[in-house]
Design a protein around this nucleic acid. Sequence first.
DNA 1: TTGGCGGATGACCATACAGTCATTATAATA
DNA 2: TATTATAATGACTGTATGGTCATCCGCCAA
Lengths: 197, 197
Amino acid sequence: MKTKQKMVSEFRRAEIVDAARSVFARKGFAGGIVDEIANEAGIAKGTVYLYFRSKKEIYRAVLDRDMEFSKKGTLERMDAAGNLKDKIRAFTLARLENAEAKKEFFRIMDAEFGSVSFTRSQYRDWLREPVLRLASAIEDAARRGEIRPVPSEKIAWLVADMTRGTIRRRLLGRSDTPPGEDAELLVGFTWAALAAE
Amino acid sequence: MKTKQKMVSEFRRAEIVDAARSVFARKGFAGGIVDEIANEAGIAKGTVYLYFRSKKEIYRAVLDRDMEFSKKGTLERMDAAGNLKDKIRAFTLARLENAEAKKEFFRIMDAEFGSVSFTRSQYRDWLREPVLRLASAIEDAARRGEIRPVPSEKIAWLVADMTRGTIRRRLLGRSDTPPGEDAELLVGFTWAALAAE
DNA sequence: TTGGCGGATGACCATACAGTCATTATAATA
DNA sequence: TATTATAATGACTGTATGGTCATCCGCCAA
């Protein structure tokens, strides 16, 4: 039965990816051991290689899946928001909460985004779409006179940077406030900067 | 002759640290090979172990030295600045330029700050001093009525986060503007947020 | 009950690498 | 120059680990 096979197989893959995320988050790419991933997934090492060609491929699968999930969630929440301020809040909050819920994944992103060479080009642009959408919203609001005119794309990236930096600080344990609070501060700050004139 | 010995020894240590920085930046901690560090320093692997007990110790030395340098530079430039806006600019610009000049180091910081377990506690707080100084400046300015009243420490961290995020984006090659330009945008944005009422 | 089949296993192999240490080269001193 | 002290070397060792593959297991149809 083809369908059932496929389902079982997808399930196994997902289990392995979950285990891998946890191991890589703890040890990084080079430090993460396939045997450990297998253990954590409750299977033998050999089995891992039935589902993935290599350690690299497992790593890529982890990042792929989680980035896709994070990007999708962010875009959806932004679409649901009405005005600019809400969109900014949606963007920031989605990312902060995502980071909170998936600390492990974000620790990987933080840890090896820039250093494991084969992931760089793959992941350079995953934020671009949400940011560009934010930029459009800023531009529209400026055109309608709700905020002062600003270089919208640059400002959008700045908001993204601020969010990223906040996530990082939270991951390092230098913030013990709930994500909503950090987000609110960020949104208020940004709004003050945009509304001013 | 004690002094000369010491000098030679310090010089060698520095050479090794320089080579290590380059290797670790390229490959991460686990991926960085001691033999490669030795080669790059133009010495044999055994010699490395005359100056450092272990690979970990080399890694720590790299981070120690560069963080110290970066922190010192940032504080000095902030002290030299007169008013709040200049202090914010000093803080941001010092860090951006530092990141530009020492891409390798920052790539390490970015890469493994949060994942190599033995470095976490060591480096969690290296930014604290500059940020707290920025917070004081904000507080003073608010007291003098130059800006609106804000939760100074939180805002200071927010500025730090924004700077960190910008550095990260620059490292990933998503920004091709000179550091001064990014800094100016950031400072202007922050100033608008603070001056607003 | 048997035969066959695909998924699962883990012992095994080859390689890579951190760290050691006996030996050698170099410099200081007398 | 001879002697001693110090720095440097790189072959070697033990261990860890990515990836393979002969074998096994459990299920199902006949």
